[in-house]
Amino acid sequence: MKCDVKPIEVTWFPGCSMKTSAMENHESFKIFCEAIGIRLIELPDWNCCGSSSAHSIDQELAIDLVARNLALAPSGRPILTACPSCTLRFKEAHHHLMESSEARIRFRKQWGVPFDPAKKVMHFFELIDGMDISAFTPGKKPLAGLTYAPYYGCMLARPPKLRNQKNFHGLLEKILGTLGAKAVDWKGHNKCCGTFLSVARPEATTEVVNAIVQSGLDSGAECLITACAMCQLNLEIRCNLKDQIPVLHFSEILTLALGKGKNTDQWFKRHLVDPKPLLAAKGLI
């Protein structure tokens, strides 16, 4: 079957990590989306979601920072995120605005437009769940022979008030499995990477990150594949084990699987653990 799909248009919220420290995540993500028929229209003049810091200091500010983005986004298409932290901040703010009439009044006053509940926030996984990515590589298993540890970090966790929403247990394994990759069973898949403690408590973060990477090594994984740009950064910069394995963004491996990698040297030189020997051995570059 030929895979001509009518592109799905989404408002794209990249967030600060994907735009700067994890540009390779962004570049590969854009290529992958184009290849599977998702048209990303970047939200013009978007601002930072507030990350871990806004809600840590001022909960109202955390809602307001997301609210500006919600107000800017055009109606009629979903807002797509790929950073688990941005996703959670957006979903919490959306939920708060749904629940509180006061918050909606405040929203209207601040932005001059009413809150539109139809502007749903969607993580990329929500969009590709149910899609058959292997249909884009007919008759081939491009990732055959690759053994990896799927790493979700805190992405699978959520506060009790969002418990009824969709979650993504096993999604990486499912999608990469259809492309031929083999996931290991390991104990690190949903362990927090430490986020900002990487700066404020580097030693404690190293302890935690080393345990995650070591567990991947012990389980026989050749690389870690992360769902989050921040996790990827922490796993690389704070690991000081003698033996290390590459940490790849999910978007990099998906794009390589589809054979669409372009200027991949630009992606890999941003990695602290060089993934090129592994990827070359698997015939992916």
């Binding site: 600060c16 930072c48 001022d58």
Partner: peptide, 19 residues
């Protein structure tokens, strides 16, 4: 120090809109 870190992040958002 953790409080200062959060304040630096927020200060950056305040100055530029992004970190």
């Amino acid at each position: 120090d953790i409080y200062n870190f959060h304040k630096e992040i927020l200060g950056s958002i305040k100055r530029y809109g992004r970190t």
